[in-house]
Amino acid sequence: MSRFFDLISDIHLDFWVKVDSNLRKMEKKIDLFVDSLVPTSPSNVLVIAGDLGHYNNQNVIMLRSLMRYYESIVMVRGNHDLYLVSGKQSKKYKWLSENRWREMKDFVNQLPGLFVLEGDTITLEGITFGGTGMWYDFSYGIIEHGKTREELDQIWSKEIRDRKFIKKQPDFAQEEIRFDRIIDESDVIVTHVGGDWSQLLLNARYVKGDSIPSFYFFDGSRWADRLSGKAWCFGHVHDHYDYMRNGCRFINNAKGYPRDNPGAKIKTVMI
C-alpha cells in the first residue's frame, strides 16, 4: 500500500519575503509565497528538513500559513535556524544560538499538528518519521581530498558563515547519539545535513580540489547496513537529489535562495 508525504527544505524565508514592521502586509506576502510552494494535491503531512529562515516571528507566520494545507508538519533544525544575523538578535538571545532555537520550539509546541524531531520518532499517516538536525564532520575533505582537520578548520573559519553567525556550535557527538537512536524505528529519516556525498563525486564542480563540501555532509557510511528499505530526507545543499544507495532512497528537495531554484515547490513523495 502506497503512503505519501510532502517534502521541502532550506526555505530561507527572509530571502523570499522581507521582514516588514507592517505585520498584516507581511502575512499577506507570506501567504502568497506559501501558495506558490504547495502542490495542487498536497499530502496530509509536510516534512521540512531544516532552514526555515533567520527570524522566528516570520517563521511562525509561515508555519501557520502552511497549516492551511497540512494536518501535520514535521521539522528538524537546520544550521540557519541557529543564526544570529545582527547585533540586535545576538543581544535578544544573549549571544547564544540555542536560545533562539529554544524559542522556536516553544512556538511550535503551542501550535497543534507541528512537531520538532530531535532524536525522536513520530508516526503519522502510517509512516514513522525519525529525525534530528545532524551536523557536518569535515569528513569529505579528509577522505576525498586528504586534508587535515586543522587545514579544514582554517577553511571553515574563513569561508563558512556558520562560524560567524552561530554562537556556540552544535555538539556533533550529541547529534550522533540522537541520529543512532532513531534509525531502526524509522521508515523515513529526516536530517538537515545529509550523510551520503556520493552524488557530489558525479559533479565536476565539486571534485577538482574543492574542500568546501566538507561542510555540506557528514560521513554516514557507518550506518549503511541499517538503512535498507528506508527513505532519508535531507537538505543543507541546495541541489536536488532522489536516488537509491545501500537500499535507501535519498531525497533532497531544497528551495534554496532565489538564485538557486526559483521555481522549486514542495514535492510529494510516495513510499
Rank of each mutant, 00 (worst) to 15 (best):
F5V: 02
I8D: 03
S9N: 05
I11F: 00
W16M: 00
V17K: 05
K18Q: 14
V19F: 10
D20E: 13
N22L: 08
M26G: 01
E27I: 07
L32V: 03
F33V: 01
D35K: 05
D35V: 00
P39E: 03
T40R: 13
P42I: 02
S43Y: 10
N44R: 14
V45P: 10
L46P: 02
A49E: 09
G50Q: 07
H54Y: 14
N56Q: 08
N57C: 10
Q58H: 08
N59Q: 07
N59G: 13
V60Q: 10
M62Y: 01
S65F: 02
L66N: 07
L66E: 12
R68V: 03
Y70W: 02
V74F: 02
V76D: 09
R77E: 15
R77M: 14
H80Y: 13
D81F: 02
D81N: 03
Y83I: 02
Q89K: 01
S90V: 02
Y93L: 00
K94G: 11
S97D: 14
W101F: 15
M104D: 10
D106M: 09
V108L: 12
Q110M: 13
L111P: 05
F115H: 13
V116S: 06
L117N: 04
G119H: 11
T121G: 07
G126V: 04
I127D: 10
G131V: 03
G133N: 13
Y136C: 11
Y136F: 15
D137R: 09
S139L: 07
G141Y: 07
E144Q: 12
E144Y: 05
T148H: 13
T148F: 07
E150Q: 14
D153W: 09
I155G: 05
S157F: 04
E159R: 07
I160S: 02
I166F: 08
K167S: 13
Q169I: 05
Q169W: 11
P170F: 07
P170W: 08
P170H: 06
F172C: 01
Q174F: 09
E175Y: 12
E176P: 01
I177Y: 11
I177W: 02
F179I: 02
F179G: 04
R181G: 11
R181V: 03
E185A: 11
E185Y: 05
D187P: 10
D187C: 06
V188R: 07
H192S: 13
G194P: 15
S198V: 07
N203S: 13
N203A: 12
K208N: 15
P213F: 05
P213T: 10
F215I: 04
F215W: 12
F218H: 13
G220D: 12
L227H: 06
C233H: 12
G235T: 01
G235D: 00
D239L: 13
Y243D: 15
F250S: 08
I251E: 11
N253P: 01
K255E: 00
R259W: 05
D260L: 00
P262T: 01
K265M: 14
I266L: 12
T268A: 06
T268C: 14
M270R: 10
